[in-house]
Nucleic acid binder design. Structure first.
Lengths: 243, 243
DNA sequence: CTTAGGCGTTTCACTGAGTGGAACGATCAG
DNA sequence: CTGATCGTTCCACTCAGTGAAACGCCTAAG
């Protein structure tokens, strides 16, 4: 483990998640493998600086992170620009619209518009393996070889029985996406949930993000929805480039 | 200045804002008053840990902050719960709907639904002095004496010519809000922009947040809009309590 | 072309910021 | 009552972090 103060502070902050919003000193110490006295002292200091805040007998993520998080460029500019178009797409398709970027071998959901169709839903700021998602695959299809190789080298674990889990299958899928101009998730990241996705290109012609219409499999019709998601993606790309 | 590593790291992170999204080593050093070598080393380490990322010849806020920011309880739970009701309120009133919490002497905008009516608009994660905003005043009206005294002790600077700037005027306004059940911003935070606001109470009966319908002064009618914003606030409070 | 200024980056002797084992009091469950 | 766990505090110790100085590169002005 990296022992610098910054590494430890980051490790502490990352210990909080959707299911553990409030944590006490001892639990943080356990989850970060830090001595309890160190965890205690750092928690207190992070609270002084509003990175964390006291909540009952424990700590939780603080307002400063929310304020700073809202300024992160990927959200501050791309998502804000995309939101109206995503809302339009949600209105016409009744799907749940996702905007995601690739980070390493995973996609991070930058903005989501529309109702969740399952109890365990995607979340803004959440992550999934790129190879198992429609948005991830459309981004990979238009990314350089390094990104694809990194994903393959990291492994292609199955999320569901339908997840593409061999390099060959993934490469063929990426080739089909490049040919079709759109991609799909056929229950590869969540049983019963499918999507049709399109890449968003930046002003420099590089792929910037992925946009998808997601919903229960029976309501996702690629033939009907493909042009809509591709058009919306182009619109978003043009607006982001102009901003 | 506080010299701890955590304080310095936080200072660096807070140096980025909406108008300075990408900053180089020397500029960060200047703005934080840190020696250039220290700034350089910390920027690099913050980038290693994804708190920041390289962008061209500079640095910008990184994806980790966006991911963590999305988990901050105030946004993760209250805003997510409130968004559908805020959308409804936006649809019926055509106003810009704000949800804000009090932090110290300022309000932080937790969620905003609807179009901005001015080029320089409120922003999710942004802040304004509580005494100059409708949402801030409705929260203060239902807060304990400590919060009100802190605001008065900090000073009541004018944002516009109409901002309440004396303790007496503020106290009378808070009393009127308690009596009316709703509050207003009559061009006190932004010339030409007004709002009608209502408090959102938590399950424990304490004020949790403020909700407002905002827009150009000529379209904000407290008589017509008061019950709508109060009803929406009650709905949100009940939903947050049940989640 | 030359010079000056500013940038990002690196080095290393120095020291005090940060550390963590140990102890303590409070609380809870058996 | 006993044992386990929690959050909190103390303090001797040491090495993580520091910043002045230097460097090469780039740009703008004269």
């Amino acid at each position: 483990m990296d022992d610098s103060v910054i590494a430890r502070a980051v490790s502490i902050v990352r210990t909080f998640d959707a299911r553990h919003q409030v944590l006490g000193v001892s639990e943080v110490a356990r989850r970060t493998n830090l001595p309890k006295a160190t965890a205690h002292r750092m928690l207190r200091e992070l609270a002084v600086h509003r990175v964390l805040e006291r909540s009952g007998s424990g700590y939780r993520l603080g307002l400063l992170l929310f304020e700073v998080g809202a300024l992160v460029p990927v959200h501050h500019t791309i998502a804000a620009t995309a939101r109206p178009v995503m809302t339009d797409l949600r209105d016409t398709t009744r799907g749940r619209i996702h905007l995601a970027v690739l980070d390493g071998t995973e996609v991070v959901y930058v903005e989501i518009v529309g109702e969740a169709h399952t109890p365990i839903a995607s979340r803004v700021g959440g992550r999934l393996p790129a190879h198992a998602t429609g948005v991830g695959k459309v981004i990979l299809a238009h990314s350089g070889p390094a990104a694809i190789e990194s994903v393959i080298a990291t492994g292609l674990p199955r999320i569901t029985a339908r997840t593409l889990h061999t390099p060959g299958a993934l490469m063929r899928e990426l080739e089909a996406i490049r040919s079709d101009g759109q991609g799909y998730d056929r229950e590869e990241s969540h049983v019963g949930i499918s999507c049709v996705a399109a890449p968003i290109f930046g002003a420099d012609g590089n792929v910037l993000a992925g946009l998808s219409i997601t919903g229960p499999t029976r309501m996702i019709d690629p033939d009907r929805m493909g042009l809509a998601v591709r058009t919306a993606a182009r619109t978003i790309g043009r607006q982001v480039a102009g901003s």
